[in-house]
Amino acid sequence: MQNIVILAGNVGATPEARTTQGGTKITHFSLATSRPKRDSDGKVIKDRDGYRVEDTEWHRITCFNGVGKTVEEYVDKGMKVMVRGRIHYTSWTDQDDIKRYGTEIIADEVTFLTRARQASEQQQGERDLPIDDDIPF
């Protein structure tokens, strides 16, 4: 059996990175995925202006080492990315002795579906290449 998840969506905020005492780079970011909201008959619900109404879900993405470094350098809020990885469930007891639960996606790959931000001034001299903004979501 395998635990595999593939998500494509929009990055919710600039990724946050840290390094453990052991030298492991850990980068976190949030990813929003959306799907059309449907009525009890399965038809897509539309608002009064004719636009479809969507359900949005937020996912916590965790990247390690090389993937984490790349995400930290090039990913920014609003970018469209595809994440391939696995679901990881955690539990802990908080300071009030209450059992808490969490879910995150451990990313093996993060693919940029829109142009990545430039890492620093080192790339300022490079020409921008055209991108395809017609990626469906």
Rank of each mutant, 00 (worst) to 15 (best):
M1V: 10
Q2H: 09
I4H: 11
A8Y: 01
N10Y: 08
V11M: 02
P15V: 12
P15I: 13
A17Y: 05
A17H: 04
R18Q: 13
T20R: 02
G23L: 13
I26R: 07
I26A: 07
L31K: 02
T33S: 02
R35C: 01
R38T: 03
D39A: 04
K43W: 07
V44H: 01
V44M: 00
V44S: 02
I45R: 01
I45W: 01
R48M: 06
G50Q: 06
Y51R: 14
Y51V: 08
R52V: 11
R52H: 11
V53I: 15
E54F: 11
E54W: 03
T56A: 11
H59E: 09
R60E: 15
T62H: 04
T62Y: 06
T62L: 12
N65C: 02
N65L: 08
V67M: 10
G68T: 09
K69V: 11
K69W: 10
T70G: 10
V71S: 08
G78K: 00
K80P: 00
V83K: 07
R84W: 03
G85K: 03
I87E: 04
H88Q: 12
Y89W: 08
S91K: 14
W92I: 07
T93N: 08
Q95Y: 09
D96Y: 14
I98V: 15
K99Y: 00
Y101P: 06
T103K: 05
E104D: 14
E104P: 06
I105R: 03
I105Y: 05
V110D: 02
V110N: 06
L113M: 15
T114S: 15
A116I: 02
Q122D: 13
R127M: 08
R127S: 12
P130K: 02
I131M: 11
I131F: 12
I131L: 08
D133E: 14
D133I: 08
F137N: 05
F137P: 02
